[in-house]
């Protein structure tokens, strides 16, 4: 998965959870949970959907990796590389 693909996967998934999110204004280093007001249930859903899309299981311990758009993107790239 390229970083572009990972970022687009992240944005698609976020849009499913927060349909009115303005992702264009979302900086790469902004805290996703705070900026998009994700609660813990939303976050579980984000992890679930990303896991299914990316094809690898994301554990609780990986939550920090999904803190920002940038870190989540590189985490998805690394995670999918570990798979293939």
């Amino acid at each position: 998965m390229t970083p572009q693909e990972a970022r687009s996967m992240l944005e698609t998934t976020l849009r499913e959870i927060v349909p009115d999110a303005s992702l264009a204004e979302l900086g790469g280093s902004a805290d996703l949970r705070q900026e998009l007001e994700l609660d813990s249930l939303d976050f579980v859903e984000l992890v679930d959907r990303l896991s299914k899309r990316a094809g690898f299981r994301i554990e609780d311990d990986d939550a920090d990796e999904l803190r920002t758009a940038d870190s989540a993107t590189s985490f998805l790239v690394r995670g999918s590389a570990g798979r293939s």
Partner: peptide
Amino acid sequence: IADRLVPA
């Protein structure tokens, strides 16, 4: 994953 617990 969909059934995971949260602290709440």
